[in-house]
Simulated scan of single mutants.
Amino acid sequence: MTVETHPVRSRETSERASVALISNWPLTVFSILLLPALVSLGFWQLDRADEKRSLIAAVDGRLSAQPQDPNTLEHLQRYSPVRLPGYFTDEYFYLDNRTRNGRVGYEILQVFVSGERRWLVNRGWMPASVSRSKLPEVSWPRAAKVITGFLYPVTQGHGDGGGNPITGDGPVRIQAVDAGLTGSLRLAKPDWTIRLSADSDTALVTDWRMVNSSPARHQAYAWQWFAMALALVILWLLAATRLPAALRQRARAWTAK
């Protein structure tokens, strides 16, 4: 005896069962549209974490190289270690609104002359005075010195250091190190500054931040996006399907046996 099968009916029964499972179509459509976006953002943050690891490795490799005299370099690169002899002039600037460990202060930028070339050197951070109107005292050695540090690019703007006039009549508080400032100082390389390393005896508080955010932070953001995606799936199951009611019904049937 031959048993007839009905694949079309079986498929229709399955489709009706899946449709019957969904009780809230607007929320279902919303979840279908939002879920891929949340997952994509999570993987994007993981890619950012990998990029930051590569950047940190490149920076560490560059900083571990032997320091060179920037006057002899044909091509300057960010974070290239440098070492040069010379002396500080009395031309210095207070870069405003710089913080270290939650304290407000300034980064001190001062002109350094090596041979016949002038460089703008960021000596590091110092705390602000109690009164905003009083700038902290800056001292520097009058004798010739050898400084060590690394190259750091200037912001490609055309302001005047953040809206402050560069007059040369004493120390100036500035808001940014840009092309407007460096272009007025007759520097050898106006597009570059030198940030002192901590072992340079003329350095203030350095503690330079090489990257804006760590790989661990991007990983944390990624897991947050993935957690939101999982929460969305759970919310959809609870609020847009009849699965909870079916589970309760099955549980009652099980306990009734």
Rank of each mutant, 00 (worst) to 15 (best):
T2F: 11
V3F: 14
R11V: 10
E15K: 09
R16D: 15
L21V: 09
L21D: 07
L21G: 07
L21T: 14
S23M: 06
P26A: 07
I32G: 12
I32D: 06
L33A: 15
L33F: 12
L33D: 05
L33P: 03
L35F: 09
L38P: 05
S40C: 02
G42F: 01
G42L: 02
F43W: 06
F43E: 00
W44M: 01
D47Q: 10
D47S: 12
A49H: 01
A49Q: 00
A49M: 00
K52S: 01
S54Y: 02
A58H: 10
L63K: 07
Q66A: 11
Q66L: 08
D69K: 10
T72D: 14
T72V: 11
L73S: 12
L73G: 09
H75Y: 12
P81W: 06
R83M: 12
R83W: 01
L84Y: 07
P85C: 01
G86I: 08
G86L: 04
T89F: 10
D90N: 15
D90V: 02
E91L: 04
Y92E: 07
N97M: 10
N97W: 06
R98N: 10
R98Q: 15
T99W: 09
T99A: 14
N101M: 05
R103I: 11
V104E: 06
Y106D: 03
Y106L: 04
Q110T: 04
E116H: 13
E116F: 09
R117P: 00
R118I: 08
W119T: 06
V121K: 04
N122K: 06
M126V: 15
M126K: 10
P127Q: 08
S131I: 09
R132T: 11
S133Q: 13
P136Y: 13
E137C: 01
S139W: 05
W140K: 06
P141D: 07
A144N: 12
A144Y: 02
K145F: 01
G149D: 03
F150V: 03
L151P: 11
Y152Q: 13
Y152G: 00
P153C: 12
V154M: 10
Q156W: 06
G157A: 06
G157C: 06
G159W: 08
G159V: 10
G162I: 05
G163D: 05
I166G: 03
I166E: 05
P171E: 15
R173K: 15
A176S: 14
A176V: 13
G180S: 14
G180T: 09
G183K: 07
L185K: 05
L185Y: 05
L185H: 08
R186E: 14
W192E: 04
D199H: 13
T202R: 01
T202Q: 13
A203T: 03
V205S: 12
V211S: 05
P215G: 04
P215L: 01
A216V: 02
H218Y: 08
Y221L: 02
A227K: 03
A231F: 10
A231C: 11
L235F: 14
L237Y: 12
R242N: 15
A245G: 07
L247N: 02
L247Y: 09
R248P: 00
A251T: 00
R252G: 01
A253D: 08
W254T: 02
W254V: 01
T255K: 14
A256S: 14
